[in-house]
């Protein structure tokens, strides 16, 4: 019993000293200065999109943003499939063909109506190039489509790319018809 009191006493003493120490330390701490920084007003989404569109039209590359973790990309549902059709490219080219513009315009207006969604653009190639080079070419096709959409006023951070090169052909045949269909950009949308 006596021993317990002694132990409790020591603990009480220790806590007292510690609090005392804390107080002393607080007193010694210098008062921090207040720092002021001039901040420009953050540009509105529309202004940013305009700036990016201008850069994209000039042909400037626009950095890719990380895909937000919450976003899961899926094939468009039946009602939207008519909008998100594949666009096609010429052999060894990543230029957006005039035939692809109506599709991209439709995609852009859909994205404007659904401002919370993100778009994943898949770049694909036919089997005729080398496997290695096609991986880079597929990415470039996806980036071309992305730049076109930015030019139409879609924020760059909503547009993501992935290249499958020639690794995922839509039609695994060896003829001109299959190749033409395999050289494509394919779209997935986030929920």
């Amino acid at each position: 019993m006596g021993r317990k009191i002694v132990v409790l006493g020591i603990i009480a003493l220790a806590i007292g000293l510690w609090l005392n120490g804390c107080a002393a330390w607080r007193k010694k701490r210098p008062v921090s200065k207040i720092e002021v920084e001039v901040v420009k007003p953050t540009p509105g989404v529309e202004e940013k999109a305009k700036e990016e569109a201008l850069a994209a039209l000039k042909g400037k590359p626009l950095p890719l943003a990380k895909v937000p973790k919450k976003k899961i990309f899926k094939e468009p549902v039946i009602q939207e499939r008519a909008i998100f059709t594949d666009i096609h490219f010429d052999f060894d080219k990543s230029v957006i063909k005039p035939e692809a513009r109506p599709t991209l315009n439709k995609v852009a207006s859909w994205l404007k109506k659904n401002p919370d969604t993100h778009l994943m653009i898949e770049g694909h190639c036919d089997e005729r190039g080398t496997e290695e080079y096609n991986l880079a070419l597929g990415e470039r096709r996806a980036l071309s489509a992305r730049r076109y959409l930015i030019g139409l006023g879609i924020l760059s951070e909503r547009l993501h790319t992935i290249s499958y090169g020639e690794l995922r052909p839509l039609y695994p045949r060896h003829n001109e018809e299959a190749w033409a269909k395999n050289r494509r950009a394919h779209f997935l949308i986030s929920e």
Binding site: P63, L64, A65, K66, L135, A136, E139, L143, H160, T161
Partner: peptide
């Protein structure tokens, strides 16, 4: 973000690659 591909390791252990 984007393409991470074609990593090649040099004799000194430096890695060259393509990013987009």
């Amino acid at each position: 973000p984007g393409l991470n591909a074609f990593a090649d390791i040099s004799s000194k252990g430096e890695i060259a690659l393509t990013l987009s």
